Simulated scan of single mutants.
Amino acid sequence: MINSYTNITSTPGGFRKLICKDSLLTLFNCKQDSRYQDIWSHHNYILYVLEGRKIWHTAHRSYDLREGTCVFVKKGGAIVEQFFDTDFCFFLFFIPDDFICDVLNKRSRPVPRVWGETEPIIAVESSATIMTYFQSMYPYFIDGNEPDPSLLELKFRELVMALADQRNEALLSYFCALMNEPQIVSVQRVMEQNFCFNLRLEEFARLSSRSLSAFKRDFEKLYGISPGKWLMEKRLSHSLHLLTNMGRNVAEAAFESGFESYSHFSRSFRKRFGHPPTAMKQLAIMNVTASVA
Results as ranks from 00 to 15, higher is better:
residue 41 S to M: 09
residue 42 H to T: 11
residue 42 H to Q: 14
residue 42 H to L: 12
residue 42 H to I: 07
residue 42 H to F: 15
residue 42 H to E: 09
residue 42 H to G: 13
residue 43 H to T: 08
residue 43 H to K: 14
residue 43 H to R: 08
residue 44 N to F: 10
residue 44 N to G: 06
residue 44 N to L: 11
residue 44 N to A: 10
residue 44 N to I: 07
residue 44 N to R: 10
residue 45 Y to R: 12
residue 45 Y to M: 14
residue 45 Y to G: 08
residue 45 Y to H: 15
residue 46 I to V: 11
residue 46 I to Y: 01
residue 47 L to R: 01
residue 47 L to H: 03
residue 48 Y to H: 10
residue 48 Y to Q: 04
residue 48 Y to F: 12
residue 50 L to G: 10
residue 50 L to Q: 10
residue 50 L to V: 13
residue 50 L to E: 13
residue 51 E to T: 05
residue 51 E to Q: 12
residue 51 E to M: 07
residue 52 G to V: 15
residue 52 G to C: 15
residue 52 G to R: 14
residue 53 R to C: 09
residue 53 R to M: 11
residue 53 R to N: 14
residue 54 K to S: 03
residue 54 K to I: 12
residue 55 I to F: 10
residue 55 I to K: 08
residue 55 I to D: 05
residue 55 I to H: 04
residue 56 W to V: 00
residue 56 W to L: 06
residue 56 W to R: 00
residue 56 W to G: 01
residue 56 W to K: 00
residue 58 T to R: 01
residue 59 A to Q: 02
residue 59 A to H: 03
residue 60 H to T: 14
residue 60 H to G: 15
residue 60 H to V: 07
residue 60 H to Y: 15
residue 60 H to L: 15
residue 60 H to I: 12
residue 61 R to H: 09
residue 61 R to P: 01
residue 61 R to G: 03
residue 61 R to T: 07
residue 62 S to Y: 04
residue 62 S to V: 03
residue 62 S to H: 08
residue 62 S to D: 07
residue 62 S to T: 07
residue 63 Y to V: 00
residue 63 Y to C: 01
residue 63 Y to S: 00
residue 63 Y to M: 05
residue 64 D to L: 12
residue 65 L to D: 01
residue 65 L to C: 07
residue 66 R to T: 15
residue 66 R to P: 04
residue 67 E to R: 08
residue 67 E to F: 02
residue 68 G to W: 10
residue 68 G to C: 11
residue 68 G to N: 11
residue 68 G to M: 10
residue 69 T to Q: 09
residue 69 T to C: 15
residue 69 T to L: 04
residue 70 C to W: 00
residue 70 C to T: 06
residue 70 C to L: 04
residue 70 C to Q: 02
residue 71 V to M: 07
residue 71 V to E: 10
residue 71 V to L: 13
residue 71 V to Y: 04
residue 72 F to W: 12
residue 72 F to G: 02
residue 73 V to Y: 01
residue 73 V to C: 06
residue 74 K to W: 00
residue 74 K to I: 07
residue 74 K to T: 12
residue 75 K to S: 10
residue 75 K to E: 08
residue 76 G to S: 06
residue 76 G to T: 08
residue 76 G to L: 05
residue 76 G to F: 01
residue 77 G to Y: 08
residue 77 G to A: 11
residue 78 A to M: 14
residue 78 A to I: 08
residue 79 I to D: 00
residue 79 I to F: 01
residue 79 I to E: 00
residue 79 I to H: 04
residue 80 V to N: 02
residue 81 E to H: 12
residue 81 E to T: 05
residue 82 Q to K: 06
residue 82 Q to T: 14
residue 82 Q to P: 05
residue 82 Q to L: 06
residue 83 F to M: 05
residue 83 F to V: 07
residue 84 F to V: 09
residue 84 F to K: 14
residue 84 F to N: 11
residue 84 F to L: 15
residue 84 F to Y: 15
residue 86 T to Q: 14
residue 86 T to W: 10
residue 87 D to I: 11
residue 87 D to E: 13
residue 87 D to C: 13
residue 87 D to R: 14
residue 87 D to P: 06
residue 88 F to L: 09
residue 89 C to P: 01
